[in-house]
Amino acid sequence: MSGRIGVRKTYKLYVDGDFPRSESGRTYPALDHRGEVIARVAAATRKDLRGAVRAARRAQPSWAARTGYNRGQIIYRIAEMVEDRAAVFAAQVRMAGVAAAKARREVFRSIDRLVWYAGWADKYQQVIGNLNPVAGPFFNISVPEPTGVVGVIAPEAPALLGLVSRLAPVIVSGNTAVVLASERWPAPSVVLAEAMATADLPGGVVNILTGPRSGMAPYLASHLDVNGIDAYGADEDMLAGLEEAAAAGVKRVVGPPEGRIAWMDDRTAQSPYAIAAFTEIKTVWHPKGL
C-alpha cells in the first residue's frame, strides 16, 4: 500500500470540556527522547489559565454535589477509556524513551490507579470522617468536603502515571482541577484529556493546560479563586515560589516528599490520605433533646 497520507492530530488544551487552542495562538514543539518533534503542542498562557480556573470553579459545586457513587462510576469510566486506548497511551509513553514493556506497565498501572481511586469515591468519607464522642448532649460529626478548585502541577515524568496518581485523588472527592501538564512530555496528558472527554466527565472538572509552566505556575499559585495546589511536579525552586504566592489566599500547598517517588509502588504512591489532603474537615454540632 502506498499513497495514503496519515491524518495528524492537533494537540490542544482541554478546558471546560472543550479542546481549544491557546488564546495566544502559540504552540511549542514536543520532542521525543531523541529530540525529534512529535507534535506541536498548544502553549497555554496565564489567560488560558484564568479561563481554566473559571471553568473549574463553575463546575465544582455540581461535581461535588453528585453522589460518590456517581463520581466513582465516572472515574471508573475514565479507566475504561484509557484501557481501550492502552496501545495509544503506551506509544505516547514510549516517546519519552521508555522501553515498550515498561511503557505498557506504566499504562496498566495508571488504569489500575484510576480504578483504585474510583472505588474510594463513596468510601473515603467513612475512613476520614467520623462521629465525635463529645462530652455533652450533642450529635457531633466530622466529614471531609472537597477543598474546591485545586491546581495540579503534574510531575514531569512519568508523564501519564504521575498525572493520574495526583489528579485522581483530587477529583474523586469533588474538587475540580486545573492541571499544568508535564512540560517536557505533554502528549500523554493530551490523550488522557481525550479519554476523559469521552468518559462522561462533566466539562470543567478537569482542565489540562500544556505549555511553559513558569509562565503559568505563579498565577495559579496566587489566584485567589484557587484553593489548593498539588505541587508534586514542582522542583525546589518552583515549590518555594508556589508556596510564597499561595500565602496571599492561605492556599493549601502539598509538596512532593523529599527523595525519589516510587510511582509504581501501590503502597506509597496511592493513599486515601492523598484524597484527604485536598479536603476540609467540616464538623457539625446539633443538640440532642426533646
Binding site: 465525635n132 463529645v134 466530622s142 464538623t283 446539633h286
Partner: peptide
C-alpha cells in the same frame, strides 16, 4: 446548628 460556641477535645 441550634447551638453555638461549643468546644470539645474530641471534636475537630
Amino acid at each position: 446548628a441550634n447551638t453555638y460556641n461549643k468546644f470539645d477535645p474530641a471534636s475537630p
